[in-house]
Computed example of a mutant assay.
Amino acid sequence: MIRRLVSGAAAGALSTLAMSAVMLAGQKIGLMPSQPPKHIVRAALPGHPHRPKPGERALGAAAHLGFGAACGAAFALLTRGRGAGVPLGVGYALMIWLGAYEGWVPALNILPPASRDPARGRPVVMAAAHVAYGATLALAVRAMADGRHAG
């Protein structure tokens, strides 16, 4: 079980890097004004929840990586460390997206719900980023499980 958690966390961290590449590309081409993890950390830090804070960019990246690793560990446990097909990984990641961007993120007044986001490109980029996360996660967990059982 510990091995499953560790390999799932590693797969989740790797998948978060793939996801972050999609998010950065979306920002670079102007589909979203800024990175949601930065806004989440900004709201969590002391002071006004919508004013910039020192270190929020780096803390946002670290928090995003940690959250992705934790979700990867949970996925590995749920799939019993054997991994799963890409469709299950993508579905899992899209449920995380919906839970966050239609759920707790707007409930905490961090960003508007994805369905009413004035930055119309942000929901598209974030959904695509979660698809990349889920596909990469499913493949990475399966590859790690195959590596454990080969030999």
Rank of each mutant, 00 (worst) to 15 (best):
L45V: 02
P46N: 07
A73K: 03
G83D: 10
F75A: 11
Q35S: 12
S34M: 05
R80G: 15
K38D: 11
G83F: 07
P46L: 10
L65Q: 00
A69F: 00
P52E: 12
R80P: 04
P36W: 02
S34C: 01
G60H: 03
I40P: 01
H39F: 12
G72K: 00
H64K: 03
A76D: 13
G68W: 00
A63H: 01
H48S: 13
R82V: 09
M32G: 04
A43D: 09
A63P: 00
H48V: 03
H64V: 01
K38Q: 12
P52K: 06
K53S: 10
A73M: 08
H64A: 07
R82E: 15
Q35P: 01
G60N: 07
R82Q: 15
F67M: 11
L77F: 06
G85A: 15
L59C: 04
L45C: 10
H39N: 14
F75E: 05
A69E: 00
G55F: 06
A74F: 05
A63C: 06
K53H: 15
P46V: 09
G30K: 08
A76G: 07
L65E: 00
A73P: 02
G47Y: 06
G30H: 05
L65V: 03
A43T: 01
R42A: 11
R80C: 11
G30Q: 09
A43Y: 08
A43I: 03
G47C: 12
S34G: 06
L78R: 08
R57D: 13
L77A: 11
L77C: 12
P52F: 05
S34K: 02
V41T: 10
A84G: 14
A69M: 02
A63E: 01
A76I: 12
R57L: 12
R82F: 12
P52A: 13
E56K: 09
T79L: 14
P54H: 09
P33Q: 06
E56Y: 10
A69C: 05
P46R: 04
G85I: 13
A62R: 02
C71G: 06
K53D: 06
G60A: 10
A84L: 12
V41P: 06
H50L: 14
R42L: 13
L77Q: 10
G72E: 04
G72R: 00
A76K: 03
G85D: 15
R82C: 13
R51C: 07
A44I: 08
A43W: 09
A63S: 05
L45K: 03
P37E: 06
G72A: 09
K53L: 12
G30F: 06
L59K: 03
R80L: 14
F67W: 09
L31S: 05
S34I: 03
M32Q: 11
C71N: 06
R80V: 05
A73R: 02
R51E: 15
Q35M: 15
H64D: 10
L59E: 00
R82D: 15
F75V: 09
E56Q: 15
C71Q: 10
L31N: 05
L77D: 06
V41F: 10
A62S: 04
K53M: 10
G68V: 00
M32N: 02
M32I: 10
G85Q: 13
